[in-house]
Design a protein around this nucleic acid. Structure first.
Length: 592
RNA sequence: GGUCGGGUAGCUCAGCUGGAUAGAGCAACAGCCUUCUAAGCUGUGGGUCUUGGGUUCGAAUCCCAACCUGAUCACCA
């Protein structure tokens, strides 16, 4: 079964020297050459003491003679192209066919536990396009880790405290006239977001008025009544003032209901949600403990700092002079709470790349505080999403709202499908269902196929174009496969077992090879935290399947054994597409 | 200025643990539907892989430098 080891053995036998497994590079043979696997023989020239062609020839001859799975070989320069026997491919296909969960490993109680933090919204604004990338990456990463046998806890940290929340509360209190999501018909998060914007508007208006009276910008800011009231509200909140806390709870509950709706539609979820309002005090405790242990130091004004100069970084503030927490303090507290709650082996934070420095520091601080997980934490960093029109800027009102975008994607999917007559004969409900799957598939695939580290441009129109490297194209291929299988079933075609003596075509062998590669792709995706790897693999597979599909008339083939083989090939391609897309959090339609 | 990313076709992106003539899609052009989903398939054109050095049998890939670009740099989260 393991060709890598066969090759290794061949070389050792031929040249009477042991070779390191990593030197045996077997790669997929390029399309233009005959064969399935290619061995690069350059690394072995030293021990063979012969030129590349001769060495390759020798190894090839040995393999064909001694390994039944190697049917033939050819040599081009220093490359030994090996052709694997058809019966081997049929065996492989049979194994894949028998394996219901092909490509995935299930976890046990003893499997390592990975905690993945993602989403991390503020409660004063609705989710936007950047959050979408975050949510999709986080969810997909969790699915990929699960598929590799890890236990996964998906977590969310909600930033529910601070001056920004008070701004929304204040504007609502003063200008809201008791508006609620019910009375306005607005989603809670949007309603609160509106008041946050309103605060900003009123505050700016006030500043302008003060400045027109001759005050400097700084003086105007200190004299602002709006800002003073917001600060006062934060003080009341921290002091536990009943009325303030009640208002805060009420408004937050609206926001959470709004978020839940968005999460549900995006298809993401969490096992455990943490709130900064519950963790910032724990962070403070941890910092004070660190101070006692002498890990941190106090400045004259009473503020607490960490000295990271020996690690090549700077000094970092952990508690302000007035004893209040900063962002870092909260993250320390949250980490402490999480590790108390779960036996975490690995912590992954899905957070934008603007926080690279923050996580570098967090890792060091946790380590200094004696948390063993500190050093090993992973910041899964991703770049910004831009639109073809340019960057999103909240000041210019060019932020793309997550809910609006999803709605637009789904309605575009519907329009396009209708125009193509694809929804003819569908009930309204079925049509909406397919549009939902396709619209979201377009969005998700387009975002996930790009390397997370890169800044990317999301082009809604291109994403929902049903040609090319898009989600809908892959979904369509899946639906077509299901159609083929349905037709076969209608015609009463029974799947018989595979005939191992069957001569199968090169195209079929290549397709099997590609399907078989799925399990190693899943593994690699987990090792390199890379949803995009899965996405690009699935696309390659789909393209290859399409070529195969167009070359053969699958159902009208006379030979039963061949027809059967092709149906099984289709079925397993479908299986891999569905599983692969599942790892990306994308649904596939049974028909479209 | 310091630190960390990114720079591949007109556009959007793969490829990056070194391997053969650098790949897709979009856009452009030319073909393919009496019959299983044409939202498809086939073909053509399009590249100094930012630049310059280095490492070696071999570099888009590794190292160094420069240039361009993004993020970040202590009391925002």
């Amino acid at each position: 079964m393991n060709i890598q080891i066969s090759v290794q053995k061949a070389i050792e036998t031929l040249y009477a020297q042991s070779v390191d497994g990593s030197q045996v590079q077997l790669q997929k043979t390029k399309k233009e050459f005959k064969g399935h696997l290619t061995l690069v023989v350059f690394p072995f020239l030293k021990i063979s003491k012969k030129n590349p062609e001769q060495t390759a020839q020798e190894i090839g001859e040995y393999l064909v003679k001694n390994e039944s799975v190697i049917a033939e070989f050819n040599v081009i320069k220093g490359f030994l192209n090996l052709t694997i026997s058809s019966s081997y491919w049929i065996d492989i296909l049979e194994n894949i066919n028998a394996d219901k969960n092909f490509g995935t490993i299930s976890s046990t109680e003893n499997s390592p536990l990975v905690m993945i933090e993602y989403s991390s919204p503020n409660t004063n604004k609705p989710l936007h396009l950047g959050h979408i990338r975050n949510n999709l990456l986080g969810y997909s990463l969790a699915e990929i880790m699960k598929a590799n046998g890890y236990n996964v806890v998906k977590t969310n940290i909600v930033n529910d405290r601070g001056i920004h929340i008070c701004k929304s509360m204040l504007a609502w209190q003063k200008l809201g006239n008791g508006a609620t999501p019910e009375s306005t018909g607005k989603k809670g998060d949007h309603l609160i977001g509106d008041y946050y914007v309103l605060f900003d508007k009123e505050y700016k208006k006030e500043l302008n008025e003060l400045q027109s009276k001759g005050l400097s910008k700084e003086d105007a800011e200190t004299q602002s009544v709006w800002m003073a009231e917001a600060r006062e509200m934060l003080r009341e909140w921290e002091a536990g003032d009943e009325e303030t806390v009640a208002l805060w709870k009420k408004m937050n509950s609206w926001v959470y209901a709004g978020f839940d709706e968005t999460y549900k539609r995006l298809g993401v979820d969490f096992d455990k949600i943490y709130y900064e309002s519950e963790t910032y005090l724990i962070g403070k405790e941890q910092v004070l403990e660190g101070l006692n242990k002498g890990v941190f130091y106090k400045q004259e004004d009473g503020s607490v700092w960490a000295d990271l100069t020996s690690e090549g970084l700077d000094h970092k503030l952990l508690l302000r002079a007035d004893g209040t927490s900063v962002y870092m303090t909260q993250d320390i507290g949250t980490a402490k709470l999480r590790f108390d709650d779960y036996p975490i082996n690995k912590m992954i934070y899905v957070v934008g790349n603007e926080q690279n420095y923050h996580f570098q520091v967090l890792s060091l601080l946790l380590d200094k505080l004696g948390f063993e997980f500190g050093k090993g934490l992973t910041h899964f960093s991703y770049g910004m999403v831009e639109l073809p029109e340019g960057k999103m800027k909240s000041r210019e009102g060019t932020v793309v709202d997550a809910d609006d975008l999803v709605m637009e994607m789904v309605s575009t999917a519907k329009e396009v499908s209708e125009a193509l007559g694809k929804l003819d004969g569908y009930s309204e409900e079925e049509a909406n269902n397919v549009s939902e799957i396709v619209g979201l598939g377009a969005l998700k695939y387009f975002i996930l196929k790009v390397d997370p580290r890169k800044n990317m441009t999301f082009n809604p129109q291109e994403s929902i174009d049903f040609n090319g490297n898009t989600g809908p194209f892959i979904q369509y291929t899946y639906a077509r496969i299901q159609s083929v299988l349905r037709k076969a079933a209608e015609q009463g075609i029974q799947l018989i077992s595979l005939d191992k003596t069957l001569a199968i075509s090169e195209k079929e062998e290549n397709l099997i090879q590609n399907i078989n590669a799925f399990s190693s792709v899943v593994k690699e995706a987990a090792e390199s935290y890379s949803p995009s790897l899965i996405a690009n693999y699935v696309y390659e597979l789909v393209k290859e399947y399409n070529q195969f599909y167009h070359d053969f008339s699958i159902l009208r083939e006379e030979n039963k054994a061949i027809r059967n083989m092709r149906l099984i090939l289709s079925e397993n391609t479908g299986k891999v597409i569905k599983t692969g897309f599942g790892l990306l959090g994308i649904n596939v339609p049974e028909r479209m």
